[in-house]
Design a protein around this nucleic acid. Structure first.
Lengths: 197, 197
DNA sequence: ATTCTCAGATGACTTTGTCACCTGAGTGAC
DNA sequence: GTCACTCAGGTGACAAAGTCATCTGAGAAT
């Protein structure tokens, strides 16, 4: 027997999964509320029982993705078997992997959130949490006194590298560099900078 | 007396300007072909005489913006009164200024281009040209042997900084840094790296 | 002068976001 | 246990917007 609230929660979950799935397979254009509903086993109007509008649904998808990223980074940070340098490498890899494996979702995660205030707040909160986890990892590498400058620099830079790669502005055969190479160079530079002058 | 081709060219121009204007003032959601047509003084169907579809129109807007950016950077690069370091600073400022003054256009410029092959090609071409101009400027600062690595790194990083700022992920009161500070740090680091080891 | 070409207008169709309203199954009060 | 209630979900409807077929009229070629 399923209670009413259980069924409702399951539908909500199915809607979010359907939206993310459609986004992955067909890009933003494929995400219509009708298609989302169909994929979740309900009809066009049903999503409005769970989200005030389409933007809020999408922003919630982004918020969940940011939260999962934050979880991953948190797990990396808390893993006692990893050295600070390894943690940094894995954390950054987690970010880039989202961009490569789920480019449309990645785009959504870093777009200015829209929709109702609750969804927007959730997205900002999740984004800040992910950022905070990264900050802590970077702090373990460069030392607290350098974190304020280098952590955001590293994050924004790696985001830029990922974003441009995802959007085809980093054609390897034209600029003769890979994203990995850029990140490696960047990390080495920051490391050196923080541990010398 | 206006010839037919003059009138057609003027309409095409008006359509592109109208699209860019609507994008600036109301975001992507405000750019409808009907609104574009109205703002350009024609009706809904007229844009299809100049662009095969909406995506192609938008991609052309992006291509023109990238071309204008390339022009600016080229002008900076060719200015004999500027030192290499000044050129770099002004070039990067040009990029960030687009992001701040015209955030929606900035987003469009760095999104994977859609539409007909001609428009896509124009956008990629313009993007590559802008990238090439930046590359030349960076080469003047760090020396040819370091350009391949540092130029794309600098560009992607500054793009990432700008993108995250534009999308509200760099709230100064939370992370206690400004975009300027990040760029300054980055440039100083690259400069130092290229001129020492 | 006649015919042709093409920019632009118009009507129509389709997709999609959104809302008002309806319905039926769990749920709490008695 | 009965009854009214709440709310998830279904359905009809509407408006906005992309797109196309078709029409028209003014400049261009002959």
């Amino acid at each position: 027997m399923v209670s009413r609230v259980e069924s409702a929660a399951a539908t909500r979950r199915a809607l979010l999964d359907a939206a993310a799935g459609l986004l992955d397979s067909g890009g933003p254009g494929a995400v219509t509320l009708r298609a989302v509903g169909a994929r979740a086993g309900v009809t066009r109007g049903a999503p409005y029982r769970h989200f005030p509008d389409k933007d809020s649904l999408l922003t919630t998808v982004a918020a969940e993705a940011l939260d999962r990223l934050a979880d991953q980074v948190q797990a990396v940070r808390a893993d006692p078997r990893l050295s600070p340098a390894d943690k940094l490498h894995r954390g950054l890899s987690a970010l880039m992997t989202v961009g490569r494996r789920r480019p449309h979702l990645y785009r959504l995660m870093f777009t200015y959130p829209a929709g109702d205030p609750a969804a927007i707040h959730a997205a900002k909160r999740a984004g800040d949490r992910a950022m905070g986890e990264f900050l802590a990892i970077v702090g373990g590498v460069v030392g607290a006194e350098h974190t304020r400058r280098f952590a955001p620099l590293l994050l924004t830079s790696v985001h830029g590298i990922t974003d441009m790669e995802v959007n085809g502005h980093l054609s390897a055969d034209k600029w003769h560099v890979t994203a990995e190479e850029l990140v490696t160079t960047l990390v080495a530079m920051i490391d050196r900078q923080a541990h010398s002058g």
